[in-house]
């Protein structure tokens, strides 16, 4: 009994970590008023670069850093298009979902003898006390840091103000373009880290399915958590817990077809939303490019 509870907790933490990174990525950019539907694509690219660098340098930390920077490189496209050129944020975000996975697999085939998986890394990211992945702790720290920055610092106030009412922020002398660009770049950094956390902490190599939907689930978790870091963190944990339950009780331990157990996290999310969470209000200017002089 105790061991299965321990294994549920462990699995929950393991599954939740990439989601939390992805969700924090969404929280940063959406609070600044830029929708980032490309998290999935960025995570995939981060996952590949992280695994590849981790393999070549034998250093998972360098891999994690490279994965995050890869996320930044990709997200710069989104930042330039959506903030500087006032492009439609959904379109330029979706573009990343094609470019990220495409580029990852393309480079993977070039570097790893036409295979779509990287060679397994020798050193994964370490575990704390041999129990939980260090990325679990990192995810928690980032969430706390993000909460602190958003609600307790001048910077956070600026980020939220350009997300709520960019015109008002502009008249107060806040550089809307700069704040939004910075937020989107941080968003890319976090999403890239989330991808790399998956391939360096959990599965130890990049495969085409290493990131399969986590970016979208993270997107949902942002909305579920009402655009707050702590809310999104909770949403990710809840979701991962449901997944862990499905895995633990699957494999014939309960007389329910495994497919229905696998549905559990998704059904649970909808049910929880109906019963407890309800209407969610996005930051007012979320998704709208800011054009000077327009009300």
């Amino acid at each position: 009994m105790l061991s299965s509870i321990m294994s549920i907790i462990n699995t929950t933490l393991m599954y939740s970590t990439p989601l939390i990174f992805g969700a924090m990525s969404g929280v940063v950019s959406e609070n600044a008023g830029v929708v980032n539907v490309g998290i999935e694509g960025i995570m995939t690219f981060g996952a590949f670069v992280g695994a590849a660098v981790g393999f070549y340098t034998q250093n998972p930390w360098l891999g994690l850093l490279s994965g995050s920077l890869a996320g930044v490189i990709l997200v710069v496209l989104h930042a330039v298009a959506s903030v500087n050129f006032k492009a439609d944020q959904t379109i330029s975000g979706m573009a990343l979902n094609f470019i990220g996975p495409g580029l990852s697999l393309f480079l993977c085939r070039l570097l790893f003898k036409n295979k779509t998986t990287t060679t397994r890394i020798a050193n994964k990211l370490p575990k704390i006390f041999g129990l939980v992945d260090v990325t679990v702790l990192l995810a928690l720290l980032i969430t706390i840091l993000l909460w602190f920055v958003l609600y307790r610092t001048k910077w956070g106030l600026r980020i939220r103000s350009v997300g709520e009412h960019p015109a008002a922020a502009d008249t107060l002398g806040i550089n809307v373009t700069k704040v939004r660009c910075t937020s989107v770049i941080v968003s890319g950094f976090l999403a890239g880290a989330g991808g790399a956390a998956m391939t360096l902490g959990v599965v130890s190599q990049f495969t085409p399915t290493a990131i399969s939907g986590q970016g979208f689930i993270a997107l949902a978790a942002v909305i579920f958590g009402k655009w707050k870091p702590q809310g999104a963190y909770g949403a990710c944990l809840l979701f991962a817990l449901a997944q862990a339950l499905a895995v633990t009780f699957g494999g014939g331990r309960i007389d329910i077809p495994s497919e229905f157990l696998s549905m559990l996290p998704y059904v649970l999310t909808i049910v929880v939303l109906i019963l407890f969470v309800g209407r969610s209000m996005a930051p007012s200017a979320n998704g709208k490019p800011y054009k000077k002089g327009k009300r």
């Binding site: 694509g41 379109i91 573009a95 094609f98 470019i99 393309f106």
Partner: peptide, 17 residues
């Protein structure tokens, strides 16, 4: 690698944006 097609599509979408 046929993934060049995804890259093409993503770039097209990016330029549409």
């Amino acid at each position: 690698p046929s993934e060049i097609i995804s890259i093409t599509m993503g770039s097209v979408l990016f330029f549409v944006a």
